[in-house]
């Protein structure tokens, strides 16, 4: 008893040390990223205002698209897995649709929404981001524990309470995992989407401008700065979220 207590204590200290070390390393990397960004700005013809405002606008577009994708993914995943016949019909169709290149939607959307470039970008991005999130949630639903459902049932948890207090927290690990992949794919696509739609502002628009003007060094630095900013977002938002939700995902 005493021995196991000591063992547990030393394990706890070890985990605390690990968390402290990984936290310190994280912050060191974030500070290094900021320093590197400053360094790249001072040694190139990059326009700070253009880069930052472009990045913020692209970030807002990606965030809106992500929110649409994640809400739709949760609703669709729960709806299709609620009935095995609907699932048997829709799942293979979604499997084909997910491999359909989102950029192929551009001509159709440009014709349909020619006066709304923002709508076109957000729609294409949402369509791109939804698949990894949707399939990750469907995977999560397949692995739901029956006894959790039984426990909720015996306490009379139905309807929206069941959705809010059982389904969402139980599916959080798969929502987070799918979101990280979807978010990454979203950033991959937004650069291309902003170039194709020819928006006035956006990080893709600015990088495209640098490329067209053959400002190669500034373009390369701009890409590195974009990667650094995305790394900082990952470190500050996605990784802590993933660590938190996966810490309880495998067992109680």
């Amino acid at each position: 008893m005493r021995y196991s207590h000591l063992l547990q204590k030393s394990r706890k200290q070890h985990i605390l040390k690990y968390h402290f070390a990984s936290g310190v390393i994280s912050w060191v990397w974030i500070i290094v990223s900021f320093l590197l960004i400053g360094f790249l700005f001072s040694f190139s013809s990059l326009d700070l205002k253009q880069v930052l405002s472009g990045f913020v606008v692209s970030l807002v577009r990606t965030t809106i698209s992500y929110l649409i994708a994640v809400i739709l993914a949760v609703i669709i995943a729960l709806a299709i897995t609620a009935n095995r016949w609907i699932e048997a019909i829709l799942l293979p169709i979604f499997d084909v649709l997910q491999s359909f290149p989102s950029f192929a939607l551009f001509p159709v959307l440009v014709v349909a929404l020619k006066n709304s470039p923002e709508m076109i970008i957000i729609l294409v991005l949402s369509v791109t981001m939804i698949w990894p999130i949707l399939f990750s949630i469907i995977g999560g639903i397949k692995n739901r524990r029956q006894d959790f459902e039984d426990a909720a049932e015996i306490f009379g948890v139905h309807g929206w309470k069941r959705f809010l207090y059982l389904e969402i927290p139980e599916l959080m690990p798969s929502i987070a995992t799918g979101s990280i992949v979807g978010w990454g794919e979203g950033w991959e696509f937004i650069i291309g989407a902003e170039l194709l739609v020819k928006t006035n502002i956006g990080i893709g628009t600015y990088l495209g401008f640098l490329g067209n003007n053959q400002e190669n060094v500034a373009l390369a630095f701009g890409i590195i700065i974009l990667l650094m900013l995305l790394y900082i977002i990952n470190r500050l938002i996605w990784l802590p979220l993933l660590t938190k939700v996966t810490s309880y995902s495998t067992e109680d």
Binding site: D147, D150, A151, P169, E170, M172, Y248, S249, D252
Partner: peptide, 11 residues
């Protein structure tokens, strides 16, 4: 009800 594998909500 009390369950074999506890069914405690891990979150």
């Amino acid at each position: 009800m009390v369950f074999q594998n506890f069914a405690l909500f891990p979150w």
